[in-house]
């Protein structure tokens, strides 16, 4: 340990000072965000290519999605982004209780998002609007449309990977609630909350594109 006794307990020994530790965390987080953009990017490319090949199929298959549930999830996710940002704002202002309330609200909103997604998914499983070879829905809207299973392959891959991110985010926010309540995070050191906040806003960011691309075609 090269630090003297006056260095704070949250400063890890391999960092020179608090500022360096903070900036390193932030640089690492944004490098991770870059890889996340490229991970989803592959799926966005699949979307663009298949939509350019089958424009009519996308417009018709899109009618099978529930715009109201999509819009509701948009509102839920934007609100959760706000509560996440306010949790950080509150802890910066040394208001631990408000920060906890905001984190719990974010957690509940994330759970709501997954609940609404579950309703959508379970309906699609019921009627057979499934990816690839598992697709079996032959309703009147789709009878004359070729390749609706491709739309649902892309839909389930993109919203599924996004949903996985929401679930992981919920776990991380749950840990933040624990760490804040215990007092490990406070106005002097809240880097994990800020980093998980960036992750959570990315989840919001991706949904901002998924919503119009799947629910609002045509």
């Amino acid at each position: 340990m090269s630090h003297d006794n006056s260095s704070p307990s949250f400063l890890q020994h391999h960092f020179h000072d608090v500022k360096q530790q903070y900036e390193t965390a932030k640089l690492g987080m944004w490098a991770f965000i870059l890889t996340e953009v490229l991970t989803f990017g592959g799926l966005f490319v699949a979307y663009v290519v298949y939509r350019s090949w089958y424009p009519e199929m996308f417009i018709n298959a899109n009618l099978l999605l529930d715009v109201n549930k999509g819009l509701l999830n948009t509102v839920v996710l934007i609100t959760s982004s706000l509560t996440m940002a306010l949790a950080i704002w509150a802890i910066q202002k040394k208001n631990k209780n408000l920060s906890l309330v905001m984190l719990i609200l974010t957690f509940i909103l994330a759970f709501m998002f997954l609940g609404i997604k579950y309703l959508e998914y379970s309906h699609k499983f019921e009627v057979g609007q499934l990816p690839g070879e598992y697709y079996s829905y032959m309703g009147p809207e789709i009878a004359h449309i070729n390749n609706p299973h491709i739309f649902f392959s892309i839909y389930f891959m993109m919203t599924g990977l996004h949903g996985l991110h929401v679930a992981i985010g919920m776990g991380l926010i749950g840990w933040l609630i624990y760490a804040t309540a215990k007092g490990n995070l406070h106005s002097e050191y809240y880097t994990p909350m800020e980093m998980i906040g960036i992750f959570w806003h990315l989840v919001d960011l991706i949904w901002i594109y998924l919503f119009p691309l799947f629910y609002l075609i045509g």
Binding site: K26, V37, G42
Partner: peptide
Amino acid sequence: DDKKLLTIFVMSLMFLGIFITITL
């Protein structure tokens, strides 16, 4: 924030743009 972070993010979008353009 430090503009290097914005640069990283914009670079990810640039590479996504290259990915989409060349595939199309």
